[in-house]
Amino acid sequence: MTPILEYKNLKKYFTVGHRGLLRREPITVKAVDGVSFVINKGEVFGLVGESGSGKSTVAYTTIGMYRPTSGAIEFQGESLFTKEGKRPRHIKKEIQIVFQDPGSSLNPRRSVKEILELPLSIHQPAKKHIGRVAELLEMVELPVDYMYKYPHALSGGEKQIVAIARALATEPSFIILDEPTSALDVSIQGKIINLLLRLRQEFHLSYLFITHDLSLMRNVASRVAIMYLGKICEVAEASEFFRNPKHPYTQMLLSSIPVVSEEEEKLKPKRVQSRGEIPSPVNIPSGCSFHLRCPYKMDICPRVDPEMVDTGEGHYVRCHLYPVQENSRPVAV
């Protein structure tokens, strides 16, 4: 497996105000606070978390909307953030994004043709693009005459398909999918997901798939990471993850999912009942940030932030219930 994207201790802090006598002490939100993981070529890497956990900040930093406070992201060994500031165009072309709400990510005044032409005219200037637009529409199984339609004439699902076509326009190798189906009805979700999985095979794409729907994650991701208050608490292969969740937060998430069959009910961890809410990222609890909601809280938890531990078979967990072995070092996932 060759890595396509590497996150190295990525941090993104936002200053949201000032306090103190002279209003000079910044109030910071630690949206992403030291995240390290690797996405391999051809993989669908799932990122799960509640609102405010920092999963979208990871996505937006990757696409270049934010510069990290510290840490790095490397795309095939090349740093995404250089001193000069601007990201080279050949990297921009490789990394694309599909946003959650296609209603607001498509310009209502532009036809589908104009929407799909924009990325083409930036990356392949001085060329006629109409043929390529038709090709893109065929790739996503939309009738070619849709290029003359405007977003308001499309259904929610069709709009999202246009947004996917736009992401494909520059022939990227990596696409970020930020909750691509959560604004759509469940009967349309399947179509979009299967289209995305087929495109991945056909064009050898890798995905960073962000969702809060764990049932959906089970069916699309090869590996899954759970985020809580800007940090990753657990990473594992998708099947292992759902069979043997280790972090108490993961267990809480899994036991909260409403399911539709008895068979699935049996897969849910019974012991952990959801309680409490995600604290404000301005005041992150000391030690392990989950200790306020954790049913297994120990004396050490409010004092010391646990480190990521390798529990074998690519399953990593950051919790004091799984202590660091004497001879092992902290690991990068």
Partner: peptide, 20 residues
């Protein structure tokens, strides 16, 4: 509708219902 719901037990996602 029932088939469209992704299952926790895995097995892929069904196509859903065509049309709108």
């Amino acid at each position: 509708l029932m088939q469209s719901v992704p299952r926790l037990s895995g097995g892929g996602v069904a196509e859903g219902i065509p049309g709108r």
